[in-house]
């Protein structure tokens, strides 16, 4: 059974930029304190002071929640932590954990670091652990993808598991409640998308899907629903979504839209090209003055 009053958390950093840690530290401070009061964070390499990773490995026989930041490799020469490979350490920790949660796209799917192909065994934790019989695990591995992960996604997942013990996951291991919607949902530029009004960098108006490479309509995330730093999102300020929660991140040419004969090669998720073209053609025949004007002169 999980320690109901204050479940233990070990945060393990593997091949990472520490961006997910700094995302956690950028969370709402009341929520962060509630998190610290509700769970027993016994080890985090940047935050806790009393326990080293070595101490945890020797003394902590049971871990309720193992949170992993960063991708994994068996190559100890290129990447070693506390005199061991990230893969060995992950295995040692995973074999005593009840829940394993990947925080960020690197731990989920390999992410940016898996592009370091000279070291070709870099991967996410699910792949790294596929040959292990994880007997203590009571739930499928959870992927909280995102580069970085949103701190609320961590909190909401942990609190839900603490309360209900189980959450529904999509086919790549992400919680459905957080990743069933698209980054597009809640984007303040949606009306420009509906009426096919193209945007430019540096402007409040227009949609970034047509030229700037925005992946909002194809990317599962709640970035425009649960806002970043509580107040903002990339697409709201004018930066295209780069699809960082998906398995194929990072892709090539992320700041431009690939087009054929002026039409985006990829259309919104689940919409047939024919449907997309018909509706676009119709929308474009109407020139809506308001949407072609500056919001404020």
């Amino acid at each position: 059974m999980m320690n109901q009053s204050k479940p233990t958390i070990v945060w393990f950093q593997a091949i990472t930029c520490n961006g997910n840690t700094h995302s956690l530290l950028s969370s709402n401070s009341n929520r962060f304190e509630l998190f610290l009061n509700s769970f027993n964070l016994i080890y985090h390499p940047s935050l806790t002071i009393n326990n080293s990773l070595e101490y945890i490995l020797e003394n902590q026989k049971e871990i309720d929640f193992l949170l992993v930041e960063g991708s994994i490799s068996s190559n100890e020469f290129i990447f070693s932590i506390s005199n061991d490979s990230s893969k060995n350490l992950l295995e040692k920790l995973a074999l005593r954990s009840k829940y394993i949660i990947a925080v960020g796209s690197c731990a989920s799917f390999g992410g940016i670091h898996a592009k370091f192909t000279q070291n070709d065994d870099i991967c996410g934790i699910k792949e790294a652990l596929e040959n292990n019989n994880l007997q203590t695990l009571i739930h499928p591995i959870i992927n909280l993808s995102g580069c970085p992960v949103h701190p609320e996604w961590i909190f909401q997942t942990l609190f839900s598991l603490k309360t209900f013990g189980k959450i529904d996951l999509d086919e790549v291991g992400r919680p459905k409640e957080l990743y069933s919607t698209l980054a597009h949902h809640g984007c303040t530029r949606n009306e420009y998308f509906e009426w096919k009004v193209e945007g430019n960098f540096g402007q409040k108006e227009g949609c970034l899907f047509y030229n700037q490479g925005c992946r909002g309509p194809m990317t599962h995330s709640s970035c425009n629903k649960i806002l970043w730093n509580e107040i903002s999102s990339k697409t709201r300020v004018g930066m295209p979504c780069i699809g960082c929660t998906e398995t194929d991140f990072p892709r090539n040419n992320m700041l431009e839209t690939k087009k054929n004969m002026g039409i985006p090669q990829e259309v919104p998720l689940g919409i047939s090209k024919r449907a997309y073209l018909s509706i676009s053609g119709v929308a474009k025949t109407f020139k809506i003055d308001r949407l072609h004007k500056k919001l404020m002169e």
């Binding site: 950028s26 960098f201 970035c223 903002s232 999102s233 709201r236 300020v237 004018g238 930066m239 700041l255």
Partner: peptide, 26 residues
């Protein structure tokens, strides 16, 4: 404090709000 950056960057960490020719936000 970092919210001040999120207003122009969309988020922090890991915004790419600067690009050759200026910035994405207005």
């Amino acid at each position: 404090t970092i919210k001040s950056l999120a207003i122009i960057g969309g988020q922090w960490p890991h915004s790419s709000y600067m690009l050759p020719g200026g910035v994405v936000s207005d």
